[in-house]
Structure formats: C-alpha cells, structure tokens
Amino acid sequence: NARWTTEEQLLAVQAIRKYGRDFQAISDVIGNKSVVQVKNFFVNYRRRFNIDEVLQEWEAEHGK
C-alpha cells in the first residue's frame, strides 16, 4: 500500500532516529513498506517531520 497511515509515519520517524539512512532496516521495522517507499517517504515527508534534523541527531550520535 502506497499510502502511509499516521502510525506508519510515526514508526518511520522513530526508525530513522534509530537507523539513520538504512532504508532496508526502516522498511523491516515498518513491515509493509518497500525500500523504495521508504526512500520516497524521506523525500515527501522531509519537511513535515524535520527529517534533516533527525538525521543530524543520528549522525552526531553515531559519528557519521
């Protein structure tokens, strides 16, 4: 399903906090979204969920 429920959106943001840009890991956490759908989520929801800021926090924690 290409549509993202609110629950899936929140799950994705939590997974980004945990896995950074590991699209496969994020896809696995959500369970019903492909890697391509996760990559599209990054692009389409970047502003709404401040994904750049979430990634900066992840990179700071993981030394990337």
Rank of each mutant, 00 (worst) to 15 (best):
N1R: 05
N1Q: 15
A2Y: 08
A2F: 15
R3C: 10
R3L: 09
W4E: 03
W4N: 01
W4R: 00
T5R: 02
T6K: 15
E7V: 08
Q9W: 05
Q9K: 10
L10S: 10
A12P: 03
A12T: 14
A12K: 03
Q14L: 05
Q14I: 05
A15K: 02
A15W: 02
A15Y: 03
A15D: 00
I16R: 01
R17V: 05
R17M: 05
K18H: 05
K18D: 04
K18T: 08
Y19E: 03
G20A: 00
G20H: 00
G20K: 02
G20Y: 00
R21P: 11
R21G: 08
F23L: 13
Q24T: 10
Q24A: 11
Q24K: 13
I26M: 00
S27L: 02
S27G: 06
V29P: 00
V29T: 09
V29A: 14
I30V: 04
I30C: 07
G31R: 10
G31D: 02
G31C: 08
K33I: 04
K33G: 01
K33M: 00
S34F: 03
S34Q: 03
S34K: 02
V35A: 11
V36D: 15
V38H: 01
K39E: 11
K39M: 05
N40L: 09
F41C: 01
F42K: 03
V43A: 13
V43G: 09
R46K: 04
R46E: 13
R46P: 04
R46Y: 07
R46W: 12
R47C: 12
R47W: 12
R47K: 15
R47M: 11
R47S: 14
R47P: 08
R48P: 09
R48M: 14
R48A: 12
F49P: 05
N50Y: 05
I51T: 07
D52I: 03
D52T: 05
D52W: 03
E53P: 04
E53S: 12
E53F: 06
V54N: 05
L55G: 07
Q56E: 14
Q56T: 13
W58F: 05
W58P: 07
W58S: 06
W58T: 06
A60M: 13
A60V: 09
A60N: 08
E61D: 04
E61H: 10
K64W: 05
K64H: 15
K64I: 12
